[in-house]
Amino acid sequence: GIPATNLSRVAGLEKQLAIELKVKQGAENMIQTYSNGSTKDRKLLLTAQQMLQDSKTKIDIIRMQLRRALQ
């Protein structure tokens, strides 16, 4: 079985993952909103794209940590 310490770690990672998935969803929504907007929305679009990139990276890292914890 999986050690108890790993189980609480997994629960924490799953919570983090859920949050990051919401951030990713929000960033994707912002990108959709701003991509057909005016030029003043360009900065917001770039910010949203950066957020999305960061979020995807975090999600990958969390998933990797989850896999390790579940081994």
Rank of each mutant, 00 (worst) to 15 (best):
T57K: 09
T33R: 15
T39I: 08
A69L: 15
R42A: 15
Y34V: 06
T39W: 06
I62C: 01
L66N: 00
S8A: 10
E14F: 15
M64Q: 11
A11P: 04
L52K: 02
N29M: 10
L13H: 01
T33E: 15
M51S: 03
L45R: 02
R68K: 14
T47R: 13
S35V: 12
I61A: 10
G12R: 15
L13Q: 00
R67G: 06
I62T: 01
A11K: 09
K15Q: 09
I62F: 02
G12E: 15
R63Q: 09
P3G: 09
R42E: 15
Q32D: 10
Q50E: 07
L70I: 07
N29F: 13
N6R: 11
L45Q: 02
G12M: 15
L52Y: 06
M64T: 14
Y34T: 03
L13F: 03
I31F: 03
K40D: 08
Q32L: 11
R68C: 15
D60K: 15
Q25S: 07
S38G: 12
K58V: 03
A18Q: 13
Y34R: 03
K22W: 06
K40A: 13
R9M: 09
L44T: 03
S35C: 15
D41Y: 05
S55A: 13
Q49T: 06
E20K: 02
I61Q: 08
A11N: 05
D54T: 07
I19P: 00
L13E: 00
D41M: 02
Q16K: 10
L21Y: 06
N29H: 14
N36G: 06
K58W: 03
Q53T: 08
N36W: 04
L45A: 02
T39D: 10
Y34K: 03
K43M: 08
A18N: 05
K56V: 10
D41F: 04
K58Q: 05
M64I: 10
M30H: 02
I31S: 01
A27G: 01
L44R: 07
Q53P: 00
L52A: 03
N29R: 11
D60I: 14
I61L: 10
N36R: 04
Q49I: 15
A27Q: 02
Y34N: 03
N6C: 15
V23H: 06
G12P: 03
Q49H: 07
T33H: 13
V10Q: 03
I62D: 00
P3S: 06
A48T: 02
R63W: 08
R9D: 11
A69V: 07
Q32P: 02
G12A: 15
G12S: 14
K15R: 13
S8Y: 04
K43P: 06
Q65T: 02
K56I: 15
L13C: 02
S38L: 10
D41R: 02
A18D: 05
D60A: 14
A18E: 11
L45I: 03
V10M: 04
A18Y: 07
A4P: 08
A18C: 14
Q53M: 09
K24A: 08
T47K: 14
S38W: 03
A4K: 13
N6V: 05
E20C: 13
Q71K: 07
L70W: 05
D60W: 14
N36F: 05
D60S: 14
G26N: 15
V10P: 01
N36H: 09
A18M: 09
T39H: 09
K56Y: 04
T5F: 11
